[in-house]
Computed example of a mutant assay.
Amino acid sequence: MNTDTLLQALRWRYATKVFDPNRKIPADVWSALEDTLVLSASSFGLQPYRFVVVDDPSLRQQLMPHAWNQRQVVDASHFVVFAARTAITEGDIDRWIARIAEVRGVTRDSLAGYRSMMTGMLLDPSFAPQAVHWAAKQAYLALGNLMTAAALLGIDTCPIEGFVPAEFDRILQLPQQGYTSVVCCALGYRSPDDKYAALPKVRLPKEELIRHV
């Protein structure tokens, strides 16, 4: 890939308002997009989130009224709810340490310093009130990764913050699992009827947004 290809994909991308409900993302392409979620960066690598892919049409119909009746929820090929951990436990940290040891073929004892760094921050009582906000920030990293990857593959996306998290949580039974919804993303293919597709992309000048010091 060259720089022109990258920038062309990002200029082509926009927050799709009208999806073609008859076009579906091929299974192999969707599998690759799921991998981009798994491969996203997160603080400590801990991945304090889950990605809920809502396949069930009836569930999507239940969610739509709680997203300002935005049709993207039901018309897009795929709809993902990004759910953040509401609390970080010692068990979460130990499961991650065990996973590192398994994948890299090292002992858990060799990771004691890393574990201590995580517990020192994440289990401190002062961190508890901010845990969900910290986890939400990690989920947003994954959202950006997904949207960029989708654009490179010619898949349209629409990030959605306009929804009622408490209602999404209730319908998807997230609190029982220790999570809360923080942002969503609809993915699929733009409809020819979406007037926004042809509008020029508007951004502030590069010189205004980027400062070299």
Rank of each mutant, 00 (worst) to 15 (best):
A131P: 12
Q173N: 13
L174G: 08
S116R: 05
D75N: 14
S77N: 04
F163A: 05
D193W: 09
S110H: 12
D109R: 06
A149R: 05
G178C: 04
F79M: 05
D156W: 00
S77H: 10
G162L: 03
K206L: 15
L111D: 03
S181H: 07
M121T: 14
T157P: 08
I155Q: 01
C158P: 13
G120E: 07
M64N: 05
A142H: 12
H78V: 11
E207G: 07
A87H: 11
E90F: 02
T180M: 14
L174M: 00
K201V: 03
R115D: 00
M118E: 03
H66L: 01
C185I: 04
A198N: 13
H133Y: 05
R115K: 11
T119D: 00
G178W: 00
W134F: 08
G120C: 04
P205K: 06
L146Q: 13
A198S: 14
R99E: 07
W96A: 02
E161N: 10
D75L: 15
R85S: 12
T148I: 09
G120R: 01
S126C: 00
Y140V: 01
T107N: 12
S181V: 05
T148E: 05
G162F: 11
A198P: 01
V106L: 00
I171L: 13
N145P: 02
S116T: 05
A139S: 15
V132A: 15
L123N: 02
V182E: 10
D156F: 01
L111N: 03
P129E: 09
R115E: 09
A149I: 09
A101G: 03
Q72I: 01
P129K: 08
I171M: 06
V132P: 10
P200N: 11
A112S: 10
F82D: 02
W96C: 08
M64R: 14
Q138C: 04
H133D: 15
A197R: 03
G188D: 01
R104A: 14
G154T: 03
T119N: 03
V81C: 13
L146V: 08
A166Q: 09
V74P: 05
P165S: 15
E208F: 06
N69M: 13
E90I: 06
S126P: 02
T86Y: 02
V182T: 10
I88L: 14
L123A: 14
A131D: 09
P165H: 11
A198R: 13
T107R: 11
A149T: 06
F127C: 09
